[in-house]
Design a protein around this nucleic acid. Structure first.
Lengths: 117, 117
DNA sequence: CCTGCTGTGTAGTATGTAGGACACATGACG
DNA sequence: CGTCATGTGTCCTACATACTACACAGCAGG
């Protein structure tokens, strides 16, 4: 299990090879945290940051926010709100889909998107 | 918006009319918290309790845990784990279903349950 | 009446969350 | 070769979370 910080570091250093502006300090500045803090995050010396910081980090590094949040052990706040609005419904749905293969879930997504209701 | 504590109190007092063992103190004892704490919870003087306590409360009061957790502003940990396992997939699904009517979602649940994959 | 249960007020605690401030050694490079 | 940017170590803080402990007034029944 490769952890949150490792992914951030890896991705940041990958970008840095192409662009000097992806030093730890400069990314930290743009993301709005102290360099020392980002350093600790990347080396896993502190738990992953808040959802807000994680989102800005994902944006900065061109990563999918939901994926990065998942690595941070979190779930996007807007998804939580969707579930809380109809807890029984979505609880059953998710538990039902837990072991379904990706393609089956994707088919459901497409069906719904194509307005079959 | 009727809050968490109000629902708990209402439900507990409803049960108590039939059964003396549903006094605040006795429920608190069975749930494993201090009576003073449950009292404050029911009157909304403190934020809703942890997921664990909420679950035991739901069990004790014959309520749906997911619903009570939603009232507590939380989402069941097992659902979070399901999402974190495949964040992109379930993020898209949930956002897609946000505005779908209940019956449409239920149809999806049934389809999957009946093993159409 | 007095024993015992009822709910509640006040105070305090432990742990987690989410970082900031500052100093420092190292290496790049102009 | 001196300056500047780089990453990192240490210390500290503010706030939220999730409760416990203890005391106390009210009333209910035997």
């Amino acid at each position: 299990m490769t952890h949150f910080g490792a992914v951030v570091r890896e991705e940041r250093e990958r970008l840095r090879r192409r662009d000097r502006r992806f030093s730890l300090r400069q990314v930290a500045l743009r993301v709005g945290v102290e360099p020392a803090y980002l350093s600790k995050i990347e080396r896993g010396r502190v738990p992953p940051p808040s959802e807000a910081v994680t989102r800005r980090l994902a944006q900065e590094l061109g990563q999918n926010p939901d994926v990065l949040l998942a690595l941070a052990g979190k779930v996007s706040g807007d998804l939580l709100a969707i579930i809380r609005a109809r807890p029984r419904l979505f609880a059953e749905l998710l538990r039902q889909l837990e072991e379904a293969p990706d393609h089956a879930v994707l088919r459901v997504v497409r069906e719904v998107r194509d307005g079959e209701w």
